[in-house]
Simulated scan of single mutants.
Amino acid sequence: MRGPVYRGIHLLRGDLGGTVKLLLTSGGVTNASIRSSLETLLDRPVAQCRALVIPTAQWGHPMCGPTSVQGLVAAGDRSKHLSGLGWASVGVLELTALSTIDPQRWVSWVREADVLLVDGGDATYLCHWMRESGLAALLPSLPDTVWVGVSAGSMVMTPRIGNRFVEWPSASDDRTLGVVDFAIFPHLDAFPTNTLAHAERWAAEVGVPAYAIDEETAIRVVDGAVEVVSEGTWQRFEA
């Protein structure tokens, strides 16, 4: 589909239902429609909001590393659709470090943030560290916080990601947090292996309702209501 917005109601499931407001993207805040949706979720302009960037998923993917993380957290092309949107403040929250830090310190950092900017990489690795760090358990107490996911940062909220997207060797399977009841195929038509035909085969494997989304599309989820915001191309697949 191109352009039109889809609105539907889906039951959230898993142990994190009723959690943060979700803006699940493939490539970040890439156009005016997605930015407007973000500011509606925030209930004020980006320039008045405090952000925390979570780069953790990158460490679980073989194509990511210090350079890609630097491009996210510092000024550069990778930051312009996420950390470089003009936030009042931007900090970095590395989940792999949190288990070594007194929760009385880091929990306050998260609670004081208006938005969590969660980058891509490997969603199973991110899922592991969200649980291990305690962030997953904290999310249900943050109903006013906005979660902006990019690629794996969005996929981690789904029930499963499909074996084709698992890159972390220690992953036991493709299951993730299951906050929403649908799966996400990101980067539609961005790579030769991410065509609609590939997405259709992937959707048949995951066995749950699913969306294939391109870089100009986001899925907004608030209180169980799902809305696709797009200036690009996307496709919904039934289970």
Rank of each mutant, 00 (worst) to 15 (best):
S37N: 01
G28V: 00
G65D: 12
R35D: 01
W59S: 15
F237Y: 13
V20E: 10
W129P: 01
V110G: 01
E39C: 03
L138V: 07
P66Y: 09
L12I: 05
S83T: 14
E216H: 12
I161A: 13
A88G: 05
E132V: 11
D144W: 05
G71C: 08
D102M: 04
F165K: 06
P209A: 15
R13K: 14
C49R: 13
A239Q: 09
R78D: 13
L42H: 03
E167S: 15
S172W: 04
A123D: 03
S230E: 03
T19N: 08
P169Q: 13
L41D: 02
V150R: 05
D43E: 15
V146R: 06
P103I: 13
S36F: 00
L52R: 07
T67M: 12
L41T: 01
L93H: 06
V180R: 09
P192C: 13
G60Y: 11
Q48V: 05
N31S: 03
T145F: 03
T176I: 11
S89E: 15
H128R: 15
A152S: 14
P140W: 08
E39L: 02
V5R: 00
V53T: 09
G232Q: 04
D173E: 10
A171F: 04
S89D: 14
L126T: 09
S108F: 02
W59A: 15
V92M: 10
V115N: 04
I101L: 14
G76L: 10
T30N: 02
V29Y: 00
Y6D: 08
T25A: 02
P140F: 12
I54P: 00
I184L: 15
